[in-house]
């Protein structure tokens, strides 16, 4: 399903893609069968700032739920990103090596982080938030004045 939920705070508009699930920290997960594509939400990328470097665990790395799967270094902060599911990293977005700003430009599309082979997706996905629930998280965080550049 295409489309976005949106919330505007001051001059900023944050989009939440409808076709995936979210960890509260802002990492999304979209099922592609047994393979789950993961990336950053629009709110997380905007509130983190321009991304200078993105480093993702290499293909073959086993990850547990919540374990660090990637780090991003932005102009403002260094962010450790926990995996929204358990499994094994199958593929890392090759574009991030030379153009990490792709995450800022297209967080739900070309700026994906990795594809993970899930070990127990039916269980892990129950821990994640629906787009509607994550939108409420974004509203709360944006309302609390999480800084955006």
């Amino acid at each position: 399903m295409q489309g976005f939920l949106e919330v505007s705070v001051d001059k900023f508009t944050f989009k939440v893609a409808r076709d995936r699930l979210y960890a509260e920290e802002g990492v999304w997960a979209r099922s592609e069968g047994e393979r789950i594509r993961v990336g950053l939400s629009d709110f997380l990328q905007q509130s983190s700032g321009d991304i200078a470097f993105a480093e993702v665990k290499p293909a073959g790395t086993p990850v547990r739920l919540g374990e660090e799967i990637a780090t991003i270094e932005t102009v403002k902060v260094n962010v450790s990103l926990g995996s929204p599911l358990a499994g094994r990293v199958m593929e890392v977005n090759p574009a991030l090596q030379s153009a990490p700003e792709t995450i800022n430009k297209d967080p739900y599309g070309d700026g994906w982080l990795a594809i993970i082979e899930a070990s127990d997706w039916p269980v892990d996905q129950r821990r994640l938030l629906t787009p509607e629930a994550y939108l409420e998280v974004v509203k709360r965080l944006a309302g609390e004045g999480v800084e955006v550049p």
Binding site: D50, A52, F53, V75, P100, E101
Partner: peptide, 9 residues
Amino acid sequence: VLDVFRQHR
């Protein structure tokens, strides 16, 4: 500036 920083981490 960010592009130059990327070359000088």
